[in-house]
Nucleic acid binder design. Structure first.
Lengths: 128, 128, 128, 128
DNA sequence: GTGGTCTAGACCACG
DNA sequence: GTGGTCTAGACCACT
């Protein structure tokens, strides 16, 4: 599982990290029960502060993706547990302005569906 | 066209405003060539800072939604001009982490398409 | 609303702060919509670091007690919103070992009810 | 008496162990004078560190639940001795913030009494 | 050695 | 001036 930070990017580091870890879980590169690197280790590898990694881990814990294991430090939660959380509200809130913008830019409902499908396939096809 | 700010929302005011104006254009409530309220007036109406409205207008100008009319008022750009801008890159960047999260939460490609279609219809059906 | 930190206490500062703010809301000293002091202000008043206050505020936001208001900084959430969150699970988890210990120490179910009632009254009677 | 550790739980292992042993005494599964498994054995059974079991035993000795028997094995103290210790202060300190939170969440004094009674019954009814 | 907590100082986005 | 983010260094509880 390769993680990479774009320091010149406007999205906060802790959020880039969060997104990439979620991507890893979605792709199946990070399996349930698998140990995450320690905050210090990951911080050193990425050249960032351990508190930033810590913030990411805490965020992912709150979102149900990770859990602290008292022997194996931080691990990926069971897929079942991750699955139980409903994000339809979040999807609506984020997608609404995006779809509105897409409409203004001349995209139709089929264009959007196709884009979503392509992104979906790109993520799932690479399952290892 | 009714604009409403949620002060307790995590998204910045200037961005809420931007999203709502884009939504207005998508719905057809704001037609091309229509003039926007003055910065001063809109700020007063919404109870927000002049700078905030200004920031929104500037952002929308940069994105091609608004244009300055005779160096005075601000008007909605022609739909054709708005249409010419390509947002596929932006869509990819924003949708990728979202789709990844949706996959983790157990949503399939059809679920997502359906959600997008529903949001799409909700916006376009209310065209006035 | 008077807040006080016991530095010699084993419970973390951010948690002491959290408990006292919740107590304030329960007593009605902190009303819904009321502004909390800024993190810098409160940190200075209590002689602690602003990040510690920040952590408390974030915790209380996640628990639904506080919300950020883009003009009034951080405010107390509506009582209705606070009310909607179910803590029965948490109560069970925290109370079970406590009740078990109480049983070992010879307390009956009535003793416990009475203690709870007394604490309850002490909090609510001082409503202002 | 079955002991089980949840490694993914936020409460420290030594505390989980302590709570379960107290629960055992409260239920009557652990009778006075009964000898506890050796530190080494219990650690092996649960797959945890020796130090952790040791810490739990020491804690329980300090709290009066366990005593050393003939400088070898550790046994459950007499119920009378356990009974003599007053925990009203501790109860107040732990219950106060909890009751305050419950009030905020809309629970009344009767709701709380009922919850406590239910937990109480669940523990005592299973006496063996 | 792990994560959790606290302090400290700095910069930035927002309003 | 507000909260949000990031860095840095320190101590502690837990295992």
């Amino acid at each position: 599982m390769l993680l990479k930070i774009q320091f010149e990017n406007e999205t906060p580091i802790y959020e880039q990290l969060r997104n990439q870890i979620i991507m890893g879980i979605a792709k199946g590169e990070l399996k349930e029960g698998e140990s995450m690197p320690s905050v210090r280790q990951l911080a050193a590898d990425l050249g960032i502060n351990l508190h930033t990694v810590n913030k990411t881990y805490n965020l992912l814990k709150n979102e149900g993706f990770l859990v602290v294991h008292r022997r194996k430090s931080v691990i990926v939660n069971t897929l079942e547990a991750i699955n139980q959380i409903d994000i339809s509200e979040k999807l609506d809130q984020v997608l609404s302005p995006l779809v509105a913008e897409a409409i203004c830019r001349g995209l139709g409902t089929d264009d959007l569906s196709q884009i979503v499908k392509r992104i979906y396939s790109n993520i799932t096809k690479e399952t290892k």
